[in-house]
Write a protein that binds this DNA or RNA. Structure first.
Lengths: 223, 223
DNA sequence: TGCATAGTAGTTGTGCACAACAAGGCCGCG
DNA sequence: CGCGGCCTTGTTGTGCACAACTACTATGCA
């Protein structure tokens, strides 16, 4: 079997979401339905289906007669999203935490190793990709699928802004802090303590937000 | 100005969602895109746009060549959703709680009055509508729009199952319990304590889940 | 009678043409 | 020179026809 239409849309959605979150399509960018359709070799219809979902997720906004733009969350919305993300991060350790086994520890060690490599050669895009993959791993520590879905939704909503601000901050320092988080989490998982890992995550989200907010709204796309 | 296309879709979405949550379209029902389109006097296109959103929200599922069916969440998914809803209910009181003023107290008194009327003449559909409106009021007690959005999403995902189970339980007793919750919450809001109101809400969700689960999966639609 | 198979009806997914709409440029008029 | 209206261009929204796919039924054959 080649590929189900359902899977094709999911793949399209994932790719377009990544282009937004990695700032290939920065906030404010006007997307062309026809252009994207031509690029993927399909008609506007399935692209519109994906854009509709991205709009429901808050990543883009379509205006009749004007265009479809990548949204740029305001400071208030960002603060509210992060506030909720902090709570959800803690819930990952409290609601149906999985039993930490050898598989989790091995995967965690892999992330720590990648984190060390990144800290030696800081680079924004690699950082963003690793952060994304590590976030997914963190979610795998809860058995609550609904929580995973909601937390993922909110993560992708903040990812592009995080990446933009990271580039404005001291990239090397951010990578170093990230590596520290990875090491702390590895310690928690080695002890089999998923709740501790969740608390480490929450603490680092909290501190990350502080640094981001301190950097201010510099670099916000003009409307 | 007549109506924006955006608003029309939002209205369609709201109406169709209500038909699902009030069990006009019970779980398992096969929806006809063409039928709905004819009913609303539009083509399949905007209906498909709305159905796509409902599918992303988990209320319906479309299968190529088969049809679009109202989903019937399994016990596991329900449990996970309610577990998260409990936590979010508490967060309403913790994240950016609004200052409780005369307006909130007046609205709350209105709900309590409607609750008393309902308790005198229990009726499932009225109960569901009142519960829905009261839930929206509860969300208005937090200034965190993201939290409101997520909590609302999860509420509508459980509403239809709740209504089905309520009908199977002792309806009069459920209405009485609901009235008790309204009175407790009114007391909390009179004291200006939004956090207390949130905790009352959480407690009642928790107890409601217990009763629902105890009633078991009787009445589940067969696949 | 049992069963495989082709056919048929009904559904969602896709492509395409056109309508609805907004922004900017251009021309004519005061 | 200023400016108001028109027009042109580009975009998203809608309708419609057809393709892709599934379930069911009838039919012919052993």
């Amino acid at each position: 079997m080649a590929e189900d239409a359902r899977d094709r849309l999911a793949r399209l959605h994932g790719e377009m979401r990544e282009r937004i979150c990695l700032m290939d399509w920065a906030p404010g960018t006007r997307l062309s339905e026809e252009g994207i359709a031509a690029e993927y070799g399909v008609s506007r219809t399935p692209i519109r289906r994906v854009l509709a979902r991205l709009e429901d997720e808050g990543l883009v906004q379509s205006l009749h007669g004007i265009g479809t733009m990548v949204t740029d969350p305001g400071a208030e919305e960002l603060a509210q999203t992060y506030a909720l993300r902090e709570e959800l991060a803690e819930l990952v350790g409290r609601l149906s935490p999985v039993e930490v086994g050898a598989a989790q520890r091995a995967e965690m060690a892999g992330f720590r190793a990648q984190g060390e490599a990144l800290a030696q050669a800081p680079e924004a895009r690699s950082f963003a990709r690793l952060n994304m993959a590590y976030f997914a791993f963190g979610l795998s520590l809860t058995g609550n699928a609904v929580l995973r879905e909601v937390a993922e939704r909110l993560y992708y909503r903040t990812a592009r802004v995080w990446l933009r601000q990271i580039a404005a901050l001291d990239l090397a320092e951010e990578c170093a802090v990230f590596l520290a988080e990875l090491r702390e989490t590895e310690r928690a998982l080695s002890a089999g303590d998923a709740m501790a890992a969740a608390l480490v995550r929450r603490a680092h989200i909290s501190m990350s937000v502080r640094r981001l907010m301190a950097a201010g709204a510099a670099g916000r796309a003009v409307d």
